[in-house]
């Protein structure tokens, strides 16, 4: 099934290890924590794949005044969401890139540029192609100890891909085996991740 790419926002700022995406309220319904996204430049530069690991919704003085009101009017709530230009900001961890048809599971040579469009990867073919090679899991684990909630990110991502791949239990189990291999000396991340996965995807029948 070919799903049309869903633009979820544009790059605000970027570095080699990740980038931030700004979006409007009405773009927030589709992407979520753990979603696979890509910064897709129009010209011939790398397409950079990443996982959403944080979604930030800022306030300002006006919002702070309005939350103190007992029952904010619906007109005011709609005004805040549709008319005021406070972007929602999503933080993305880079996990690979593609140039022409070549996928590489490493940090990109160049980050995306400001205002490059960012799309949500929903097409099962594209997601399957990217996730067939589990090398990118090393890049997620590399972020352990930073502000990235690695254990929860792994759970959300594996669950998300499992569903997009049509409840592909074989893939999910191979991802889990890869994680066990990579985290065999880091039980602090491994055990909570496996416990959370067994709850999130009970049909895998993991016993921790």
């Amino acid at each position: 099934m070919n799903r049309q790419a869903l633009e979820i926002g544009r790059v605000l700022r970027a570095s080699t290890v990740g980038f931030s995406v700004g979006c409007r309220v009405n773009q927030l319904s589709a992407p979520g924590f753990g979603s696979l996204v890509k910064a897709q430049p129009a010209e011939a530069r790398e397409t950079i794949y990443g996982l959403i690991y944080n979604i930030n919704i800022d306030d300002d003085q006006l919002i702070r005044r309005l939350v103190m009101v007992e029952s904010p009017r619906q007109e005011v709530i709609e005004d805040q969401r549709r008319n005021r230009l406070l972007p929602i900001e999503m933080s993305v961890l880079s996990i690979g890139y593609q140039l022409y048809d070549q996928l590489t599971y490493g940090l990109p040579p160049r980050p995306p540029l400001n205002l490059d469009p960012v799309t949500l990867c929903q097409d099962p073919e594209e997601v399957t192609r990217f996730t067939d090679n589990l090398s990118y899991l090393r890049l997620i684990l590399r972020a352990a100890g930073s502000s990235v909630p690695v254990d929860q990110l792994l759970v959300a991502h594996i669950n998300d891909v499992y569903l997009i791949r049509g409840k592909d239990a074989a893939w999910a189990l191979s991802a889990i085996h890869e994680l066990i291999e990579l985290l065999r000396s880091n039980y602090d991340i491994l055990i909570p991740t496996l416990e959370a996965l067994s709850e999130a995807v009970p049909e895998l029948e993991l016993s921790v």
């Binding site: 619906q74 007109e75 709609e78 005004d79 969401r81 549709r82 008319n83």
Partner: peptide, 14 residues
């Protein structure tokens, strides 16, 4: 300019 539609539940126009 803002046109606020009191009582409508709709977003104002700006």
């Amino acid at each position: 300019t803002i046109a606020y539609y009191h009582g409508s539940g709709d977003s104002p126009d700006v």
